[in-house]
């Protein structure tokens, strides 16, 4: 039953994601028809086959498309779209996990300080005179994990990590890191604009390189989180009940926290702090598919991908490009408030 519903919903959302990707790739300075985009995408499909005694990648499609069109789609638009999909996927996934974990509808992926930690790392890299390849993303990633681990360590006593303590420690550390960011920005000088732009969250300068770094991390941890979806359901009943139902509560909490923190860190380190995706997408999907995390996690993740690709398309379609973080908040907040007023969103 659950499996069938999961597959059906995920299939539908995959179709929607494909459609959004095609439309998004068609939009931009150079006008390209959606059909052409679809051709390019299909041309990129590769199937492994055994040819001449060795493994070769065989391209089943060979539609006739202009080389410039192909270049624009595959080199310029697709990296950004795919990265946007990965980031949206990761943020909505982590958001759904955190809301269930904290049994709190206000929880979002950065609730235990991941985003603030990433921001300190990234801004420090931008402001300080250091130069390493992939430095900003690396700094952000490390900052995120250090912050999350610090919050966890502060909230843990005698092998127990009470969720309420974790929440408060997260809020306190975020405030502290906020101060650190402000201080760094004060001394940013010429790099102030870059730093602020990063903080707003954007997908500008996306490359296939970033995709190759983020995709395996997010996908691998997605599988881990799926494996723990049932435990997350049981955790919703409260930790005591979960324990009596045979869940190793503290261990499960550690795994969920670590996994979702890394997922969030991966997203934030490549795209900056993009707010609201991780908060509202899981709520919207909960309205549609219900609270069961076995369905909620994959559908939220896919819906997050759709949402971020769509909003990023809006962000780059205006007369001047704006960071996608502004668009997600500007579109997401009113929609969320609407749901709130309709009493649609009131619990997990």
């Amino acid at each position: 039953m659950v499996l069938r519903r999961t597959v059906a919903w995920s299939g539908a959302l995959c179709g929607l994601l494909f459609a959004v990707v095609v439309v998004s790739a068609a939009l931009g300075y150079a006008a390209i028809g959606p059909l052409e985009v679809a051709y390019v995408l299909l041309n990129e499909v590769r199937v492994p086959a055994i040819g001449a005694g060795s493994l070769v990648w065989f391209r089943p499609f060979g539609f006739d498309v202009a080389t410039t069109t192909e270049l624009i789609v595959t080199r310029i638009r697709l990296p950004r779209i795919v990265l946007g999909a990965i980031v949206g996927f990761a943020l909505a996934l982590a958001g759904a996990v955190m809301q269930g974990f904290f049994r709190n509808p206000m929880a979002d992926p950065s609730i235990i300080g991941v985003s603030s930690g990433a921001a300190v790392g990234a801004v420090a890299f931008i402001v300080l005179p250091v130069s390493v390849p992939f430095g900003r993303a690396t700094f952000a990633f490390v900052g995120a994990l250090v912050a999350a681990f610090a919050v966890y360590a502060i909230a843990t006593e005698g092998g127990q990590t009470p969720v309420a303590t974790l929440l408060l420690a997260g809020v306190a550390l975020q405030t502290f890191l906020g101060a650190a960011i402000s201080f760094l920005l004060l001394n940013a000088g010429d790099s102030l604009e870059t730093a602020v732009y990063w903080l707003m969250g954007h997908l500008h300068n996306s490359t296939w390189g970033r995709v190759r770094v983020a995709l395996p991390v997010v996908l691998a941890l997605f599988v881990v989180l799926l494996a723990y979806a049932r435990d997350l359901n049981v955790l919703l009943l409260g930790e005591d009940d979960a324990h009596t139902l045979g869940i190793d509560v503290e261990r499960t909490k550690r795994i969920l926290l670590a996994t979702s923190s890394i997922v969030t860190a991966a997203a934030v380190s490549v795209a900056g702090v993009i707010g609201f995706v991780g908060l509202i997408v899981p709520h919207m999907m909960r309205l549609v598919v219900g609270p069961d995390h076995r369905i909620l996690l994959p559908t939220s993740a896919l819906a997050g991908a759709v949402f971020l690709v769509a909003t990023d398309t809006v962000a780059r379609s205006g007369p001047t490009e704006v960071p996608v973080g502004i668009v997600t908040a500007a579109l997401g907040a009113p929609f969320f408030l609407y749901l709130l007023r309709q009493r649609e969103v009131h619990s997990l």
Binding site: N233, L236, T244, P291, D292, S347, L348
Partner: peptide, 12 residues
């Protein structure tokens, strides 16, 4: 175990 109270913040 049937506890005294069970949280009801979920919509199962």
């Amino acid at each position: 175990t049937v506890p005294q109270e069970t949280a009801a913040v979920f919509d199962f």
